[in-house]
């Protein structure tokens, strides 16, 4: 076995894992606060990919900008803003009216919302695969000989750094700010929190907005890195990210990142050294195995049953 190849697969897995982790954050935060699986989250991420391409196209082909850093920063800001709006609207329209009803109602509503978003984008933007021009490319970092090397691209570095940075920021918000305290209070006991003067509806909206914003960050990075997307990516990536969130222990922020990284690495290594056909089977089997031995995921708190 060649060390360079193993290292390269680790780099591949780390990048993929960071992306899964970023999207998993949205699942885990929403789950943490209202205990529902937000199936439409993957589609929010898909919308952000479209927004990215639209922003870049507007800046470059309409307004004729050429200064790449400015385009990237502005794209990121605009996409985060609009995707947050999508997250907020979805919560307001499809989930808030269901607050307090039986547990499965929001799940079905979320599945419906996921269908709506997919088809809404498909009808307005056509079903064809879209793309963005490659803005950052050219000088990957290569270590090793001409034939046998490990390569890290600028985008891969950016993805991993941004993923960890957003994780740190989110953890800080949850752990150390007034907003975070309100979030945690709502999570533990919504009725009690509202009695203590926390506007729980507002807190839940904010959580949805934060979740959508992290999906937007992932959307921008992924779109720039792979250059192509369609209206179906939300489903494909969404299921993986959701798996990552559960693997790490749903409701736990570091768990989402850990789950994402493990899933990304597992997929890359299995695909690279065993078989690509059965890569997804392996990923799901890993999840099942982990849950059999740790029924609440790797970093999840064990459920305390109240009697």
């Amino acid at each position: 076995m060649d060390w360079m190849i193993i290292l390269q697969q680790l780099v591949n897995g780390l990048t993929l894992g960071a992306i899964y982790g970023l999207i998993a954050v949205g699942y885990t935060m929403v789950y943490g606060i209202i205990g529902m699986i937000n199936f439409a989250h993957g589609d929010i991420y898909m919308v952000s990919a479209y927004l990215t391409a639209i922003c870049i196209a507007v800046f470059m082909s309409w307004w004729g900008w050429t200064f790449v850093p400015l385009i990237l920063v502005l794209t990121l800001i605009v996409v985060i803003l609009f995707t947050s709006l999508y997250g907020w609207v979805v919560e307001r329209v499809a989930y808030r009216p269901l607050r307090g009803s039986q547990r499965l109602a929001p799940l079905i509503s979320a599945i419906g919302m996921s269908l709506v978003l997919q088809n809404y984008v498909q009808i307005s933007q056509s079903a064809r695969t879209q793309g963005v021009p490659s803005l950052i490319s050219g000088h990957p970092l290569r270590i090793g000989s001409e034939q046998n090397f490990v390569q890290i691209t600028e985008m891969q570095i950016l993805i991993v750094i941004v993923a960890f940075l957003s994780m740190a920021v989110l953890s800080y918000i949850i752990q150390a700010t007034a907003l975070g305290r309100a979030c945690r209070a709502t999570q533990q006991d919504r009725v009690m929190a509202s009695i203590l003067g926390i506007n729980t509806d507002k807190i839940i909206s904010i959580v949805f907005i934060i979740g959508a914003a992290s999906a937007a960050v992932a959307g921008v990075l992924v779109t720039l890195n792979y250059g192509t997307f369609d209206f179906f990516i939300g489903f494909v990536t969404g299921i993986k990210a959701f798996t990552a969130a559960v693997l790490g222990g749903i409701g736990s922020l570091p768990g989402a990142m850990l789950g994402g990284l493990i899933l990304g690495l597992a997929e890359s290594l299995f695909s690279g050294f065993v078989n690509t056909d059965y890569k997804d089977v392996f990923a799901f089997a890993l999840l099942v195995l982990v849950l059999i031995f740790r029924p609440s995921g790797l970093l999840g708190k064990p459920e305390v049953e109240k009697v």
Binding site: I5, N12, I233, S268, D277, K279
Partner: peptide, 18 residues
Amino acid sequence: EGLTRGEKDFNALVTKLR
């Protein structure tokens, strides 16, 4: 080998090809 339809990341497979 077969890859999965709808996915966009084939880096692991490409490294394997290499």
